[in-house]
Structures are given as structure tokens and as C-alpha cells.
Design a protein around this nucleic acid. Structure first.
Length: 431
RNA sequence: GUGGCUGUGGUGAAGUGGUUAACACGACGGAUUGUGGCUCCGUUACGCAUGGGUUCGAUCCCCAUCAGUCACCCCA
């Protein structure tokens, strides 16, 4: 219970991490790729609050799901409202769509989001308490083509990130009309072999028998191997929808595996469900997960509206790219460093740096009393192209020294011409 | 919520129940006074996660806590 002050002050909360300067470049790069893909597919960004009324998640995600029943950060604010840090963003997006009447004539409404989510889980490889998701939601269209487009978008995203070795597993879990029937027949089947199931499954085959299908334990796998497959038992409409989606994927040369065991843990899913998996990630191998959630809009008080979407884990994408050695290292560095030699040069150095920045040159200057040698070492470490040396001699003569850090040459010129010359040098570099 | 493994300086990482806790990298400073990337030299641990306990004495033994890690579970 008691934690030392030191731990409290110097340790980030469990399951959270700082994104340090050495890593933020990768994050920005990835975010750029995500946004660009959204642009290509005509998805527009929506930003919703990081906390919502707890009720939203209870209704939207389902109060019996693990996410809601044991993983939420819920608290009361000073006004007595029960609020919850969002564990995912689909419910909030739909809430906003309904609240702001975004569903007009122009359908589908295609939205994307990116930001932090919160789940009180035990931290593990690829799993954090604060993590980040990128996701899309297309609302208002029922036809299989939009399922396929969403799938293809996810695939092209992975492709853009050069993530090879990702497998797409797809399934249909039926709709509100046919799933209950399947559920019954599955329960019925499982009734006959409860004693062969693992402890967890014995418990949940009553509450949510579908979950037994994706249990990892061998004994359960054996039992469900000959269980009725949902793909065989969904209603005609669902079956046709599913085969249409598969045909569209095939027509686009998108590889996939139908996995009739694939089940999603959030209540709002129906019909098409899918996962993009990367097996070298460890236990948390799902990079992207999604599917249809046709009932959600109505559940949250809107007109019945079909919807499809997916969510991707940013940390997992980054982790996978690292494992795959395809994560670009983007280190931003200044182009120019100004070196004041001695106190007297400080003013001139600062003024010059400002002038360069005003011209759009990324520029830094050295602070503190450092020897010329150490200042040059600094310039070298920073990887700047040009160092500007300003010492007493230069000051007296109204000149500065420009040193090309990529070679050995240096020139002395009037301070007034310095900025022009630097622009020339940099322009030559970028050609 | 359950289980396994781990916890030494900015990082990687040796080490022993008993005076000054290796080494490497990094960082900082210097190698004749104003010049980098190589080289050389020097400096760099409120003392070995925190709190208890065992002991004449613990960083090394025991317990608890916290944290990290992996797996279960769950999911992105």
C-alpha cells in the first residue's frame, strides 16, 4: 500500500510510458502515414473527449464485457457525475455523430480518430494502461463493398508501413436475428462435453459461449473442433453479406483466412469481424481489429444506422515495425549552429540566430561558457551543416566565420552577408 | 485478478557476507593560450529498487512492498 515518495515522484504510473524525443519522431512519422491513408480513403478526423459519461460505455460496449466490467478507469467528478476514461473510441464517436447530427444525406460518414485510450490491465508485451489507438468508422452504408473497403484500407495501411507477415483472419458472427439461434446450438453442443473444457470455459460457456471458441487451451480446442461453425448457421442475409465481402476481397487480391473461431469481445459487433495479426509480437498479436457494429447507433439513441470500422494499436504497430526492421529513424536536427566565443559575442549570436530562423533556417546557438573546441564538438554531434563562429576578432571586424561541418572549408565574411550565404549553402545541399 | 523470471551509476553490464563496488559506452573537462569528427588523459554510483528481518557485519541470505518483464486472462 505504502509507496515511497521517491517511487511516486520518479516513476510514471504503472502501464504508462513517456514518449521521449528519441521516439517521438517515429510516432509522428507513423501518424503522418495514418492520416495520409485516411486522406486517400476520404476519412475525416474527429476528436472526442478522453472521458465520457460512464453510461456511454456501459450501453455501447456492453456491461458484461471484460473491458467494461473490470478494466475501466471510472471516477466521480466534483459534481457527482460518474465519468470514465475512454477504453476505446467507437462508442464515443457514435455518441458524437448522434449528438451532432452528422448523419445527413451524404452517406457514408467516414471518420477517423487517433489518441490515447485507457484500460486497467496487467501490463504485458504490447499492452499498456494508457495506449494509443487509431481507428476508423464508416456510418450509414449497409452494403458489403464498404466492409471490403474498410478491410482494404487496413491492409493498405499495413502495406504502407512495410509490415510483412501480417495475416488477415475474417469471420461473420451473424446478426441479432440469427446469432441467438447459433448461440443456442453451440451451448447445446457444449453441454455434452463441459467436463472436457478448461476452468475458464466451463464458467463462460453459459454467459458467452462464443468465447469458448477462441480459447487458447488445447483441450478446449479439441472440444470445439467439431462444434457447429457459425459460418454455417447464420441467416441467409448474413451469409450473403459475408460471401459478398469475401468475393470483393478476392477480386482485390486481398489474402485472407476465414476463421470461424474469431470472436470479438465487445458487444456491439455483428456480421463481419476481422483481425490483422502479426505473430512475432508475442501474446498480444492483434495489430488491427474491427468489424461491423450495425446496432450501435440505435443503441445510443440514433436512427438505426449500419456501421463498420476498425481500431489499430499504435504501440503494437510501432513494436511490429521495430521487430520487422522497417521503422524509419527520423531524427530532426538543426541545420545551423551559432558559436559565440566569449561573452561579448552573445548578443550578435542571438540576433543572427533569430535572423536565420526568420528566414526559415532551423538554427540553434550554444549557451553557457564553452571552449571553442567543445562547441565544435557539439556542432559535430548535432550533425549541423554549418557552424557560425563569432569571436572577439570577428566582432571587432564586423565579420563572422562560416564553417562547413561536412568538410573542412571555412570562410570569413561580413556579418551582413552571413544569412544570404548560409541560405546559398543550404540550398545547394538540398538539391 | 493469477503465475514464472528479474531489479547494481544516464545506458549496457561484472561482482563479493566484512577496508577504496570492475569494465564498456555515454556525458563533461583537458592535450600551450580561438577550431570538430581519430587518438590520448582526467572526472563521472545521496552506495547496489523501497521497507523490514537474520547476522558481530549485507549490495550480495530471508520476507514484504513497489516496479519491470513474460504468460494466463482480455484486447488494439
Amino acid at each position: 500500500m505504502e509507496r515511497t515518495g521517491q517511487t511516486l515522484l520518479t516513476g510514471a504510473p504503472r502501464g504508462t510510458r513517456d514518449i521521449l524525443p528519441s521516439q517521438s519522431g517515429s510516432w509522428q512519422w507513423l501518424e503522418h502515414q495514418l492520416r495520409h491513408t485516411c486522406r486517400l480513403y476520404n476519412y475525416r478526423e474527429i476528436r472526442t473527449p478522453v472521458f465520457e459519461h460512464t453510461e456511454l460505455f456501459l450501453r455501447g460496449i456492453g456491461d458484461t464485457t471484460d473491458v467494461v466490467s473490470k478494466e475501466m478507469y471510472t471516477f466521480n467528478d466534483r459534481g457527482g457525475r460518474s465519468l470514465t476514461l475512454r477504453p476505446e473510441n467507437t462508442a464515443a464517436v457514435v455518441r458524437s455523430v448522434v449528438e451532432n447530427r452528422l448523419l445527413g444525406d451524404l452517406l457514408p460518414v467516414k471518420l477517423y480518430y487517433i489518441g490515447p485510450m485507457f484500460r486497467y490491465d496487467r501490463p504485458q508485451a504490447g499492452r499498456f494502461r494508457q495506449f494509443h489507438q487509431f481507428g476508423v468508422e464508416a456510418l450509414g452504408v449497409d452494403e458489403p463493398a464498404i466492409d471490403a473497403e474498410v478491410l482494404l484500407m487496413a491492409a493498405s495501411l499495413l502495406d504502407r508501413l512495410q509490415l510483412s507477415g501480417v495475416m488477415l483472419a475474417i469471420n461473420t458472427i451473424g446478426c441479432g436475428l440469427c446469432r441467438p439461434g447459433y448461440r443456442r446450438s453451440l451451448t447445446c453442443y457444449l453441454d455434452g462435453c463441459v467436463d472436457r473444457l478448461c476452468g475458464d470455459c466451463r464458467r463462460r460457456y453459459r454467459t458467452n459461449p462464443l468465447r469458448v471458441l477462441d480459447c487458447k487451451r488445447e483441450e478446449c480446442h479439441m472440444v470445439t473442433r467439431s462444434a457447429p461453425a457459425i459460418t454455417e448457421q447464420v441467416c441467409t442475409q448474413c451469409r450473403e453479406h459475408f460471401t459478398a465481402v469475401l468475393e470483393l476481397l478476392a477480386a482485390s487480391n486481398q489474402a485472407y483466412t476465414v476463421d470461424s473461431r474469431l470472436v470479438r469481445g465487445l458487444d456491439y459487433y455483428n456480421r463481419t469481424t476481422f483481425e490483422f495479426k502479426f505473430d512475432r509480437l508475442g501474446a498480444q498479436s492483434t495489430l488491427i481489429g474491427g468489424g461491423r457494429d450495425d446496432g450501435l447507433v440505435a443503441e445510443l439513441g440514433g436512427q438505426p444506422t449500419p456501421a463498420v470500422g476498425f481500431a489499430a494499436g499504435i504501440e503494437r504497430l510501432l513494436l511490429a515495425m521495430e521487430i520487422n526492421h522497417c521503422l524509419p529513424t527520423v531524427a530532426e536536427r538543426p541545420e545551423v549552429l551559432v558559436l559565440p566565443i566569449g561573452r561579448a559575442a552573445k548578443t550578435t549570436a542571438l540576433t543572427l540566430a533569430e535572423e536565420l530562423r526568420g528566414r526559415g533556417v532551423a538554427c540553434d546557438l550554444v549557451f553557457g561558457e564553452r571552449s571553442l573546441r567543445s562547441q565544435l564538438r557539439l556542432a559535430d554531434r548535432l550533425g549541423v551543416y554549418v557552424a557560425v563562429l563569432i569571436g572577439d576578432q570577428e566582432l571587432a571586424a564586423g565579420r563572422v566565420v562560416l564553417k562547413d561541418m561536412t568538410g573542412k572549408e571555412q570562410i570569413t565574411l561580413p556579418a551582413a552577408e552571413c544569412a544570404d550565404k548560409i541560405e546559398q549553402i543550404l540550398a545547394k545541399r538540398s538539391v
